[in-house]
Design a protein around this nucleic acid. Sequence first.
DNA 1: TCCATATAATTAGGATGCTAATCATTAAGA
DNA 2: TCTTAATGATTAGCATCCTAATTATATGGA
Lengths: 150, 150
Amino acid sequence: MFFLKDLPTRQMLQTYHERYPGMNAEAVAEALRLLRRGSLLMRALEAYFTAHTLSQTRFLVLIVIDREPGQEGLLASAIADRLDISRPVVTETVKALVQAGLLGSVPAPGDGRAKRLTLTLAGRAVLADLLPGYFALIADFMAREGDGTA
Amino acid sequence: MFFLKDLPTRQMLQTYHERYPGMNAEAVAEALRLLRRGSLLMRALEAYFTAHTLSQTRFLVLIVIDREPGQEGLLASAIADRLDISRPVVTETVKALVQAGLLGSVPAPGDGRAKRLTLTLAGRAVLADLLPGYFALIADFMAREGDGTA
DNA sequence: TCCATATAATTAGGATGCTAATCATTAAGA
DNA sequence: TCTTAATGATTAGCATCCTAATTATATGGA
């Protein structure tokens, strides 16, 4: 998360440019807008998921299992491949989702180390419940915040 | 942070649109690109600061003090106003920066509750050291990743 | 076969974020 | 004045992320 509320003014970036001539002021200005807008949207999404006893990460785990073509589910390692989070976080997130009844976990046939993770009916129901609000929140944000290129 | 590596394809968004007609597929696609690009840049910035025994948050605390016009420094509450982080995080970040010798802390005249926080010479030196690499990293990222509108 | 290596998952320990509650001081009003 | 409310900062407790190390199982080559 990028926490700076007021981005540097053009004037401030100009001052930095004079001090550090190699700096590309326009690229920096655009990058900071990107970071700030992304962080604001992430804040809004986290609040949405928290209000529904979930989190962004748990939601994404459900999503990547849901969007897999077959019905065989995914191994934790496959989830880690699809998400940019460490293995231990996958372990703990999956554990929480299994405990919440949103994921099923069965030993992987043919590999004693692994477990196959599938969405339960409750897990599918949670996704179906949350997706409309998720899309609506995003659309609101994009409409309200503009495209940041102003 | 937004952890999904492969954003949904146009096809997948189309499928969601059929299931949830109120959804604005283009706004969602753009928002997810924003989130993912912002997260990648944040990952790169965090790695840069970690390699220099700092963090994004500590860096931003130094920046907001540095960019204040006067030389009187800031109260912790003023830092919290300028950054989108909670008060306790300001307390602990400031404590770490004072211990590292990058911030000075003196009782605020006229208010027995508050402290005035100022950059030390070492704090200014750290900023001067890190800023060129910070700007270079951002410029590299923006050049390499394009503007995301492709 | 059997040992070395690779892979799936977890555990251990630490960093950093949050909210709610608390302490100390200041400001405001009856 | 004296009590109440507001403000600056911190503490307590929890959630979630990380890296490094560990455990258990598979795989591949001498």
